[in-house]
Simulated assay, not measured.
Amino acid sequence: MTTTLRAIRAGLLVPLALLLAGAAPAAHGAPGHGLPGNWLRLAVTRGDARVGDAPGVLLLCDPPRGHAHAAQACRQLAAAGGDIGRIRSRAGAMCPMLYAPVTASAHGAWDGRRVDYTHAFSNSCVMGAETGAVFDLSG
């Protein structure tokens, strides 16, 4: 075998090994994502926009970062066992009866379980009252 052929094979084996290593599920993340611990990709769309069109943020909770209110959002998620639908509603929230629809979506992993959440709310005030700081993506 020539030196050139060996160099080409060696050059292909390293990227192939890295590709295969990245394809293995992470021990504590969702399959294929390779992120450890508890994390969610969050997005909020307004009106008729599709959920995939909205820019999102990555909320990481081990330690809390990547989100304007990461510590508070992670505490609320921890209290709800990572289930956004179980977050305690804000007591006494007074939201206007204004129809300005928003759709909140979250995808990621919590305590080794996959999280897929999408819910439409009548307006952003109602969304905040029902989901706490999780979808408060304002800085």
Rank of each mutant, 00 (worst) to 15 (best):
T4L: 08
R9I: 12
L12D: 01
L12K: 09
L13F: 12
L13N: 04
V14S: 08
P15I: 11
L18I: 14
L19R: 01
L20P: 04
G32W: 12
H33W: 12
H33S: 07
L35D: 08
N38H: 11
N38V: 02
W39K: 12
L42W: 00
T45W: 02
A49L: 10
D53N: 05
A54H: 02
G56M: 13
V57R: 14
L58C: 05
L59H: 04
D62N: 15
H69K: 09
A70M: 06
A70I: 00
A71F: 00
G81F: 04
D83K: 12
G85T: 08
A91H: 06
A91I: 07
A91V: 05
P96K: 11
M97Y: 10
A100I: 04
H107F: 08
W110N: 07
D111F: 01
G112P: 05
G112V: 09
V115D: 02
T118V: 11
T118A: 11
A120F: 03
A120Y: 00
F121T: 06
S122Q: 10
V126R: 15
G128V: 03
G128H: 11
G132S: 14
G132Y: 14
G132N: 15
A133F: 11
V134M: 07
F135L: 12
F135Q: 14
L137K: 03
S138V: 06
